[in-house]
């Protein structure tokens, strides 16, 4: 599959086989930032994420990777084009529904962990469940289970600053999984940890994928990107190539 830009690409994104079960469809998306002059972050991107797929996005700094991820994550809306998540055009959703989407359908993992500094590990993991109005007990149970699964069963009540970078990122992954979302969006999750810890984190993402999650991963490192089924190469806000990864690496 190769993708150029423009309407043809958008049509292609819809027409291809796996798109029938696409969880996310990005159709000819443009994103511009207006800071005096206009900065074009995305310039006609079309992409579909099939249910249960594992996609890596690579590209030089400033090429628009994070922007793409944020649009799919309903943190922002495109200047033009459509981002369809779970059958709904994100731009058309009321603020309330967009928040719900972020809370329960999508799990974010960031390069800088982004944990709440004054909340303990278990409370950070439970945060999406607070907004989803789970009861306190159910939240705690779910968060403890997830932290045990990522190997932090003995760090439940530690504050983020009392944890190592790798441990923090594992807390963040547990948090991303807390509300049992369909989609995991990870923006350079291994960017701030050493190689061994990075491998552990990739194992956790692989495990999530094995449980049926759809994963979109942004990374600089080829070695990390190779964990995915395919690698989307982005340059200057446009997709240059979509490269399948050979099974078995």
């Amino acid at each position: 599959m190769s993708v150029t830009d423009g309407d043809a690409a958008a049509a292609g994104a819809r027409a291809d086989g796996p798109e029938d079960e696409a969880v996310v469809t990005v159709a000819d998306v443009h994103k511009e930032y207006d800071l005096g002059g206009t900065v074009t972050a995305l310039d006609g991107v079309s992409l579909a994420l099939a249910e249960g797929s594992y996609t890596a996005v690579m590209g030089p700094s400033g090429s628009g990777k994070s922007t793409l991820l944020n649009l799919i994550g309903a943190l922002d809306t495109p200047t033009a084009g459509e981002v369809i998540v779970d059958g709904e055009n994100v731009a058309d959703l009321p603020e309330r529904e967009r928040a719900r989407l972020r809370g329960t359908e999508i799990g974010f993992v960031f390069q800088t962990f982004n944990l709440m500094p004054r909340l303990a590990a278990v409370e950070n993991v439970a945060l999406p469940l607070v907004f989803a109005e789970w009861s306190r007990r159910e939240r705690r149970e779910r968060a403890e289970t997830l932290l045990s699964e990522v190997g932090l069963g003995d760090r439940l009540d530690h504050l983020p600053r009392e944890l190592s970078g790798g441990q923090r990122q594992r807390v963040a992954i547990a948090r991303a999984l807390a509300a049992d979302p369909e989609i995991i969006l990870a923006d350079e999750p291994t960017g701030n940890v050493d190689t061994d810890t990075g491998a552990e984190i990739m194992d956790l993402l692989a495990a999530a994928r094995d449980r049926g999650n759809t994963i979109l991963l942004v990374t600089h490192e080829r070695r990390i990107a190779d964990h995915a089924d395919r690698i989307v190469h982005v340059t200057d806000g446009a997709i240059e190539e979509i490269e399948p990864v050979e099974a078995g690496e």
Binding site: G73, L75, E95, R96, A99, R100, R102, G103, T104, F108, N114, L115, M116, P117, L127, P128, F131, A132, R175, A179
Partner: peptide
Amino acid sequence: KEIGIMKATGARN
């Protein structure tokens, strides 16, 4: 940043 985190984890405005 905390506000951003809360919004990313499902907090409404």
